[in-house]
Amino acid sequence: MIVPLIKGLQITLKHLFKKPITLMYPEEKPDVAPNFRGLHALKVSHNKAKCVACYLCPTVCPAKCITVEAGEDANHDKYAAKYEIDMLRCIFCGYCVEACPVDALGMTQTFELANYKRSDFVFTKERLLEKK
């Protein structure tokens, strides 16, 4: 009866001398995988967003959290005049990235998305542009 208890204590005592695995978040940050599905980023090429406003991402989005409005620029090219993602509705499934036909959208390793106001969770195009 007492032997199994002592064996159990042996196991826990052995663990006492092992290196702790605790991550001291937020001082220490976890290693996030490169393909992590975090905050979205609009990719930039030649100093402008690559997005051509084809509307595939709002179409395929299961949560319907993406709003795109197309516009025409000085070269008569179609571009996204408005591009908003409502992070309160987003389920981070990555379908928008998978659907993008011009590789204009990606997902970053940013996972800390807490904020104070509901309006702060609606990410406009300026906030989504990738930081270089």
């Binding site: 663990h15 393909n35 992590f36 599905r37 499934c93």
Partner: peptide, 29 residues
């Protein structure tokens, strides 16, 4: 309580494979 902490330590190893594989720890999709 001890078993709880040990199990979650091991679970984290599976979760990190999930994260590298699919990009999410829980909602793998």
């Amino acid at each position: 309580m001890t078993v709880f902490l040990y199990c979650f330590r091991e679970r984290e190893k599976v979760m990190s494979i999930y994260e590298k594989l699919s990009g999410a720890r829980m909602t793998s999709n």
